[in-house]
Every structure is written in C-alpha cells, then in structure tokens.
C-alpha cells in the first residue's frame, strides 16, 4: 500500500463522515408533520418537533410531546382513540370514529427498502 493509497482511503472516509454529519445536522430532523382531518376536511397540520396541545373542535384534544402524538381527551363513549398507541415520525394513524377525527403523519421519511432496491 502506497502513501497515496492511504491518502485516498482517508479522504473518502473523511468525506463519508462529513456527509453523514451534514445529513445528521441539517436534514435528519425534517421528520414529519401531524395532519388532523375532521369529517374529511383538513383541520390543520402541526410540526412534530413542537410540543403542544391541540384542541380539535370541541370534541377531542391531542398532544404532541417529544415527537409523539397521543389523543389525550375525547368525548366519545369508547375512547378507542385515547387508548391507541402514540404515533411518531415513522408514521401511523389515530382514529376517533364517532367524532370523525383522523390523526396521521405526513411527510415522513420512507422507512425500509422498496422492491427496486431489493
């Protein structure tokens, strides 16, 4: 192994580390947004990074905390939505059927491998 070989290997590794850092710092938290749909109409879109409580009409309240979304209050009889697992930037939905409230994650990164990549 000659000196220039070592320089080449080091340069490529540094480049890889640099790109990795850049994507980490600048792009990785472009995670996703919470879209709330009520009665088939979009009620609002919220950033997952911002912790907040969202009052949905008069019937439901959901909460974004630490990038996770949960339904914390609903006036429906069964409360299935409140017992649904929290959804985060990897996607998922929480549905409150009686009030026709639909929480979903949009703009998330594609997880997994598609058929083209095999």
């Amino acid at each position: 192994m000659k000196k220039r070989d070592i320089i080449l290997v080091a340069a490529v590794l540094i480049l890889a580390g640099g790109i990795w850092l850049i994507t980490r710092v600048f792009f990785n938290d472009s995670g996703g947004q919470l879209r709330i749909t009520v009665d088939n109409e979009i009620y609002g879109t919220y950033d997952l990074k911002q912790d907040q409580e969202i009052q949905i009409g008069t019937t439901n309240t959901c909460e974004i905390k630490g990038g996770k979304v949960t339904m914390i209050q609903a006036d429906c009889p069964d409360h299935i939505c409140m017992h649904s697992a929290a959804i985060d930037k990897d996607g998922g939905t929480i549905v409150c059927m009686p009030n026709r409230v639909f929480l979903e994650i949009v703009g998330q990164e594609d997880g997994g491998v598609d058929t083209i990549a095999q």
């Binding site: 290997v9 490529v12 590794l13 480049l15 890889a16 580390g17 790109i19 990795w20 994507t23 792009f27 990164e109 594609d110 598609d114 083209i116 990549a117």
Partner: peptide
C-alpha cells in the same frame, strides 16, 4: 437509483456506500 425513483433523499445512503466501497475495494 436516485434518478429512477426521483428521490434524492437516497443521498442519506451515500456515506454508508462510501465506507463500504472503501472496505470492499481494499
């Protein structure tokens, strides 16, 4: 691949492929 799926987010993959290219190349 990025051109075919018109998704330039694939560039996240670049560091992994650079390192693996170095290792397998060696």
């Amino acid at each position: 691949a990025a051109f075919v799926v018109t998704n330039f987010k694939l560039m996240y993959y670049l560091p992994v492929l650079l390192v693996s290219g170095v290792v397998t190349g060696l």
